[in-house]
Simulated assay, not measured.
Amino acid sequence: MYPDIEPYDHGMLDVGDGHRVYWEVCGDPAGKPALVVHGRRADRGPEHQHHRPPDRRFRDGVPEGQRDGNLALAYSCLLHDPDPAVREKAARDWCDWEDTQVRTHPGRRPDAAYDDPVFRLRFARLVTHYWAHAAWLEEDVLVREAGKLAGIPGVLIHGRLDISGPPDIAWRMAQAWPGAELHLVEQEGHGAGGRRTTELILAALDHFALRS
């Protein structure tokens, strides 16, 4: 990896409707900019959730009448319940599921961040809020509008074992984005912590930096 450095600029981007997104800029202010984006399956709305059935323990964490519907919305309601015990159980159930689906290799240890009850609740509320509303994006809008990126080079890096975000969207984006380069990484899953994924990210950044 590159040496750790502090951002020289950062802030909150107003994206409308009272929402803000954190951003930061690192590296050489006079250098060539590279945007690193970690996305979720935001183009798939609640109507597609039944295509990825979660395990029964996860489904059983919400009221029976909501188990075949928008599970993210059902969990979001539990995470805002007036009863602290209900909120805590929902946060633990959600984070247990999140942590389990990214541990695709034997011996991979659970994420210690989920041991913090404050983090668990905050994380689960944030994720379910966006998932329940499909990030307020129209169905398939990312792929449909990808052609507008023509002329902007991009590298898509996706673990083939990514359960929470299967690689079909990355593949479709690569077809719709002129000039995009897709890498499906064998034996790696969600996140950017795998050795091969890290190598590909660094290689892409180095390549862009050397381009005239």
Results as ranks from 00 to 15, higher is better:
residue 79 L to N: 11
residue 51 H to S: 01
residue 16 G to D: 11
residue 72 A to F: 15
residue 11 G to C: 13
residue 129 H to F: 13
residue 161 L to Q: 09
residue 44 R to A: 13
residue 189 G to R: 12
residue 167 P to F: 11
residue 115 D to I: 04
residue 47 E to C: 10
residue 19 H to C: 04
residue 212 S to P: 15
residue 118 V to P: 02
residue 62 V to S: 05
residue 11 G to D: 13
residue 146 A to R: 10
residue 143 V to S: 12
residue 164 S to H: 00
residue 44 R to T: 05
residue 145 E to R: 15
residue 109 R to V: 09
residue 50 H to W: 09
residue 211 R to E: 04
residue 132 A to R: 13
residue 69 G to H: 04
residue 159 G to L: 03
residue 130 Y to T: 03
residue 201 I to K: 06
residue 118 V to L: 13
residue 17 D to F: 14
residue 92 R to S: 06
residue 166 P to G: 06
residue 200 L to W: 06
residue 74 A to K: 06
residue 138 E to W: 01
residue 79 L to Q: 13
residue 78 L to A: 12
residue 192 A to T: 15
residue 21 V to F: 11
residue 148 K to F: 07
residue 12 M to P: 00
residue 101 Q to N: 09
residue 211 R to L: 11
residue 201 I to G: 10
residue 68 D to R: 08
residue 209 A to Q: 08
residue 156 L to E: 01
residue 10 H to D: 02
residue 211 R to F: 00
residue 123 F to T: 07
residue 38 H to I: 13
residue 69 G to V: 02
residue 151 G to V: 08
residue 154 G to A: 15
residue 197 T to K: 12
residue 205 L to R: 14
residue 9 D to T: 09
residue 198 T to I: 02
residue 195 R to P: 00
residue 168 D to R: 11
residue 71 L to Q: 01
residue 51 H to G: 03
residue 33 P to C: 02
residue 169 I to F: 13
residue 83 D to T: 12
residue 3 P to E: 05
residue 206 D to H: 14
residue 146 A to D: 06
residue 197 T to P: 14
residue 118 V to K: 13
residue 97 W to M: 01
residue 124 A to D: 04
residue 135 A to L: 08
residue 57 R to H: 08
residue 143 V to I: 15
residue 138 E to L: 07
residue 82 P to L: 05
residue 80 H to D: 13
residue 36 V to L: 15
residue 61 G to Y: 03
residue 131 W to R: 08
residue 82 P to I: 01
residue 121 L to V: 12
residue 7 P to Y: 08
residue 25 V to T: 13
residue 77 C to F: 04
residue 149 L to V: 10
residue 134 A to T: 07
residue 161 L to H: 08
residue 143 V to K: 11
residue 70 N to S: 03
residue 207 H to K: 14
residue 106 P to N: 04
residue 181 E to I: 05
residue 91 A to V: 07
residue 174 A to M: 10
residue 194 G to F: 03
residue 25 V to K: 15
residue 174 A to I: 06
residue 166 P to E: 05
residue 124 A to V: 06
residue 21 V to S: 10
residue 197 T to E: 07
residue 41 R to P: 00
residue 1 M to V: 11
residue 192 A to D: 07
residue 87 R to L: 03
residue 73 L to Q: 15
residue 29 P to D: 01
residue 98 E to V: 12
residue 192 A to M: 14
residue 189 G to E: 05
residue 68 D to P: 00
residue 95 C to Q: 00
residue 74 A to F: 07
residue 139 E to L: 05
residue 203 A to Y: 01
residue 191 G to Y: 08
residue 11 G to P: 11
residue 61 G to P: 01
residue 106 P to G: 07
